[in-house]
């Protein structure tokens, strides 16, 4: 089997993504300082989700690599999600 081709990502792409990540960090800090009740948790985790998607896709090259890696990473995230869901079936209804 031959090795996969390597995609060279330009510096500017990385810097752009970094800027985006820093902005999102500031946004999540700012938003959570306002009292939004239960929405706070949702928003903070939503922003964390976007940030991690950016890191996975660009910094970790999932966007450019063989789709198998993305499949595995998403699979594991889903697995953790299902595990939390099933565990909560116990705690929510106890």
């Amino acid at each position: 089997m031959e090795n996969e081709k390597h995609h060279i990502v330009s510096y500017s792409t990385y810097l752009l993504i970094l800027a985006l990540l820093l902005v999102l960090t500031v946004v999540s800090v700012a938003v959570t300082q306002i009292n939004l009740g239960t929405l706070t948790v949702t928003i903070a985790l939503f922003i964390a989700g976007i940030k991690s998607a950016l890191v996975l896709a660009i910094f970790m090259h999932l966007k450019f690599d063989n789709k198998m890696y993305a499949f595995m990473a998403i699979g594991v995230v889903l697995l953790i999600g299902i595990m939390i869901f099933i565990t909560f079936l116990d705690y929510l209804y106890r």
Partner: peptide, 21 residues
């Protein structure tokens, strides 16, 4: 690099869970 990004990735979740919420 991949390992370092993973460490970053985990922090992205630890930060809101402990400091922000």
């Amino acid at each position: 690099g991949l390992y370092w990004h993973l460490v970053d990735l985990i922090w992205i979740f630890l930060f809101p869970l402990f400091y922000l919420i």
